[in-house]
Computed example of a mutant assay.
Amino acid sequence: MPKLNIEEIKAIIPHRYPFLLIDEIQDYEAGEFAVAKKCVTINEPFFQGHFPSYPVMPGVLIVEALAQTGAVALLALPENKGKIALFGGIKNCKFKKQVRPGDVLELSCRVVNRKGPVGIGEAEAKVDGKTVVKAELTFAVQ
Results as ranks from 00 to 15, higher is better:
Met1Asp: 08
Pro2Tyr: 00
Pro2Asn: 05
Lys3Asn: 11
Lys3Gly: 06
Asn5Gln: 07
Asn5Ile: 06
Glu7Val: 07
Glu8Met: 00
Ile9Phe: 05
Ile13Thr: 03
Ile13Val: 10
Pro14Asp: 12
Arg16Gly: 04
Arg16Gln: 08
Tyr17Trp: 10
Tyr17Lys: 06
Pro18Ile: 01
Phe19Asp: 02
Phe19Lys: 00
Leu21Gln: 00
Ile22Ala: 05
Ile22Val: 10
Asp23Thr: 04
Gln26Gly: 05
Asp27Met: 06
Tyr28His: 08
Glu29Pro: 07
Glu29Arg: 13
Glu29Thr: 11
Glu32Ser: 15
Glu32Leu: 14
Glu32Pro: 09
Phe33Ala: 10
Ala34Met: 09
Val35Glu: 12
Ala36Tyr: 01
Lys37Trp: 06
Val40Arg: 01
Thr41Arg: 04
Glu44His: 02
Pro45Ile: 02
Phe46Ala: 01
Phe47Tyr: 12
Phe47Glu: 05
Gln48Val: 00
Gln48Ile: 00
Phe51Gln: 03
Pro52Arg: 02
Pro52Asn: 05
Ser53Asp: 14
Tyr54Arg: 09
Tyr54Ser: 10
Pro55Ser: 03
Val56Met: 01
Val56Tyr: 01
Met57Trp: 02
Met57Phe: 10
Pro58Val: 09
Gly59Ser: 09
Val60Ser: 14
Ala65Phe: 05
Ala65Trp: 07
Gln68Tyr: 09
Gln68Trp: 12
Gly70Val: 13
Val72Leu: 00
Val72Pro: 02
Leu74Asn: 00
Leu75Thr: 02
Ala76Ser: 14
Ala76Val: 02
Asn80Cys: 07
Ile84Pro: 03
Ile84His: 03
Ile84Leu: 11
Ile84Val: 14
Phe87Gly: 11
Phe87Thr: 11
Gly88Asp: 10
Gly89Trp: 11
Ile90His: 09
Ile90Trp: 08
Lys91Ile: 10
Lys91Asn: 15
Lys91Pro: 05
Lys91Gly: 09
Lys94Phe: 10
Lys96Cys: 12
Lys96Phe: 15
Arg100Asn: 14
Arg100Gln: 15
Gly102Asn: 04
Asp103His: 14
Leu105Ser: 07
Glu106Cys: 06
Glu106Ile: 06
Leu107Ser: 10
Cys109Val: 12
Arg110Gly: 11
Val111Lys: 14
Val111Pro: 13
Val112Gln: 13
Arg114Glu: 13
Lys115Thr: 14
Gly116Asp: 04
Gly116Val: 01
Pro117His: 08
Pro117Ile: 09
Pro117Leu: 08
Pro117Val: 11
Val118Ser: 11
Gly119Ala: 15
Gly119His: 14
Gly119Asn: 13
Ile120Asn: 14
Ile120Leu: 14
Ile120Glu: 15
Gly121Tyr: 06
Gly121Cys: 12
Ala123Lys: 13
Ala125Arg: 04
Lys126Asp: 07
Val127Ser: 13
Asp128Val: 04
Asp128Arg: 11
Gly129Cys: 03
Lys130Ser: 12
Lys130Cys: 09
Thr131Ser: 15
Thr131Trp: 06
Val132Pro: 09
Val133His: 12
Val133Glu: 13
Lys134Cys: 06
Ala135Asp: 12
Ala135Leu: 13
Thr138Arg: 09
Thr138Val: 14
Ala140Pro: 00
Val141Gly: 03
Val141Ala: 02
Gln142Met: 08
Gln142Arg: 08
Gln142Ser: 06
